[in-house]
Amino acid sequence: MRKIILSNGQTVEVECLSCALTSGVMEPDVRVITETEYFHAPQDVAYPIKGLVINYN
């Protein structure tokens, strides 16, 4: 397990952050930049770098 401090200050302990997010084990607490029927682009959950967009299909 790995401890990760999220952009909202919350600490989580997971094997894989991406796996936990995509499987629904944890809900991201981030701002969604845009979302359509086929595209979901939130601010990065762990590293909110200006201009960085993460695409979860």
Rank of each mutant, 00 (worst) to 15 (best):
A46S: 10
A41E: 14
E13T: 13
V53E: 15
G51V: 06
G24H: 06
V14W: 01
M26I: 15
V45F: 02
P42S: 09
D29P: 00
N57W: 01
V25M: 10
Q43F: 04
G9V: 14
S7A: 14
Y47K: 04
I49Y: 06
C16A: 11
Y56T: 00
D44W: 07
T34L: 14
K50H: 09
V30D: 07
D29K: 15
V12C: 02
M1K: 12
I49P: 06
T34P: 00
V32R: 01
N57R: 11
K50N: 11
R31Q: 14
L21E: 04
V32S: 07
L52P: 01
D44A: 09
K50Y: 01
I5S: 11
I4C: 06
I4T: 10
A20F: 02
S7K: 15
H40L: 13
V53T: 11
N8M: 02
V32G: 08
I49A: 12
N8T: 14
A20Q: 03
I33P: 15
V14C: 03
R2T: 15
I4S: 06
V14T: 09
D44T: 01
N55R: 07
N55P: 09
Y38L: 12
E27P: 00
M1W: 13
G24A: 03
I49N: 10
Q10V: 07
T22M: 03
P42Y: 15
E35N: 10
T22K: 09
G9E: 11
I5L: 12
A41Q: 11
N55I: 11
N57A: 11
R2H: 07
I5R: 15
A20N: 05
A46Y: 02
V14F: 01
Q10A: 07
T22P: 09
P42C: 03
E35D: 08
T11N: 01
E15K: 10
V14H: 01
R2N: 14
I4W: 00
E15P: 03
T11D: 00
Q10N: 14
N8E: 10
L52Y: 02
A46F: 05
E27K: 13
I33A: 15
A41F: 04
A41I: 11
C16P: 01
K3G: 04
N8I: 08
V30F: 07
E13D: 06
S7P: 03
R31E: 15
S7Q: 14
I49D: 12
E13M: 04
R31A: 14
I54F: 00
K3H: 08
N55L: 04
P48T: 02
R31H: 11
R31S: 13
S23K: 05
V53L: 11
I49T: 12
E37H: 02
T36C: 05
V30N: 11
S23H: 04
A41D: 06
K3N: 08
S18G: 12
T36I: 03
E27Y: 10
M1S: 13
S7I: 13
L6D: 05
S23C: 06
H40V: 08
Q10H: 09
N57D: 11
